[in-house]
Nucleic acid binder design. Sequence first.
DNA 1: CTGAAAGCGCTTACAG
DNA 2: CTGAAAGCGCTTACAG
Lengths: 341, 341
Amino acid sequence: MAGTGLRVTIADVAKLAGVSTATVSRALSGADGVSAQVRKKVSETADRIGYRPNELARSLRTTRTRTLGLVVSDVVNPFFGELAVAIEEAAHASGFSVILCNTNEDTSRQDEYIQLLRARQIDGLLLTPALDESPALRAAALEGIPMVFVDRALPAVEVPVVRADGRRATKDLVDHLVGLGHERIAIISGPRQTLTGRERLDAFRARMRRHGLRVPRELIRVGNFQMRSGRVAAAELLDLDEPPTAVFAADNLMALGALHEIRRRGLRIGRDLALAGFDDPPWFQLLDPPMTTVAQPVKKLGELAVETLLQTVAGATASSHVLECSLIVRNSCGEALSPRQ
Amino acid sequence: MAGTGLRVTIADVAKLAGVSTATVSRALSGADGVSAQVRKKVSETADRIGYRPNELARSLRTTRTRTLGLVVSDVVNPFFGELAVAIEEAAHASGFSVILCNTNEDTSRQDEYIQLLRARQIDGLLLTPALDESPALRAAALEGIPMVFVDRALPAVEVPVVRADGRRATKDLVDHLVGLGHERIAIISGPRQTLTGRERLDAFRARMRRHGLRVPRELIRVGNFQMRSGRVAAAELLDLDEPPTAVFAADNLMALGALHEIRRRGLRIGRDLALAGFDDPPWFQLLDPPMTTVAQPVKKLGELAVETLLQTVAGATASSHVLECSLIVRNSCGEALSPRQ
DNA sequence: CTGAAAGCGCTTACAG
DNA sequence: CTGAAAGCGCTTACAG
């Protein structure tokens, strides 16, 4: 039987090289305690017959798969898309593959994926958790599955978090808007359950207060980080008896939606209405005028997330990391008094 | 030992339920030939102790992993990004996971990924091949690894291809441009090695000829489907003694680059210069004016690719599929005579 | 330095 | 309907 089938196994190499499978394994893995002569013979034989170790068998034996699970709440969102790419890149550089899972913010789907990934014996789990708690997630955390959260945290779950803090940059943005003469500034914020949602809103209000400006309830809209919610919020704001002169959309997709509504009404940003966004997809600078926004260090976020996870996988206790965001001033809020870019 | 460790195995369930592991396996997999009584007992026990079969062990035994490898040439490109999401979605619906690999058009990296995925015993391979031939790819095809190409084909490799044909829509676009009075129309085409690159260029030239318009060599620029190449090409076109009045960028990223250059020079699309694109990322309609473009049925492409691959995996001979693209007329080429949207 | 053997956690002929 | 046993393809103590 052996050697007859299509797949070539370690036994085939052993037979042809005239050694045991143990020796083949050692020779090929670079373990020491193999004579140079035998090592050479083995690796030549392996090359000749095109042997590649079956990772499944190896993993079953070693209980390590060199595979990471990546569970993302919305990969279509350019922010998460870029993040996913950065993560794959970093994982690959460390010899890990990544299984991609998209939950669309669906908690039960998230749970399904977590179970699936665990059954597949992934070494670690990287996720941007859906908004609500979920049983499988709690269970995984409790059982000590190596895991790190990216961008979001869950209050009751203790897991290292890698994310970017938008507070300082949001304050810079408020200063920028106020500097341009805006006083009636609205915010389209993210869901209150998310750290990023709360944080951007809190920083916004705090800084407005610092400038002696109040933010009436009607100027605070809560979206869900998706395009449609941005459009709806913008419509509500523009329908106000006294609409805002500036709008801060706390995510690239909600900014996209807001822009949609603004355009639909024949208004122009930077002139009829100031609009600032969050995140910095490539097309932000191609809008007319280019979009002023708060950018996150996406690539670094991905790298750090993988690094942190791999520490946990290696048995070390990893800690959370918070990076800084930065304000990128363009012209969507009117001509800047002191343009920085 | 058994039962002491953290992971709970089939042996633990067997012992507690008082049956053999064979029976547990049968009961849980739903195989028939198990009494209702035993089945109940087993599944209750399994639930109680939180047993989940180790997929690695299962795969080693069954030689099927229910995992697909997805090798994409450039996931950051929104077209490929959307495609990847659609593929993951479709695969998941059929019970398959997908390992994401990004080659950045690097042939050697593509080969590395192919080897890696094969070592991981994936059931099938989905890829948008890098431009050049590559040894590992040829080998995989030759050895009959279930495989389908998406969006691109490789001349010497016989593998089913799932893609969208842009010829008809490109002709529609030329008609549209000519209808608006344009005669000096340039194209920023994709690499000649790609089917999509050649196809869009060929259709463009053929249709221009049909209108009795010639396309001088200087109006044909070849990019690489990336942003920078679109910018460079646009710059060259605008620097011509007699620049074109309309530009067709045959990919969303090259359109983005071209737009960049156009803006940089203070020109406005739809007025100073007509610009049409390919693909339809969400922000195309938010440009000012919104971008006229040729859209691909990305989601269907993904679904069909997975469907085709799974046929091959199941041992059937699958064939290639070609879908149609559609012209979406907006206003980036000037006011349309008979606007369709 | 090398080999025989056990075992990772399953599934599946083969018996009964 | 159920179980004992073999085996998927590796790695790794254990001997020598």
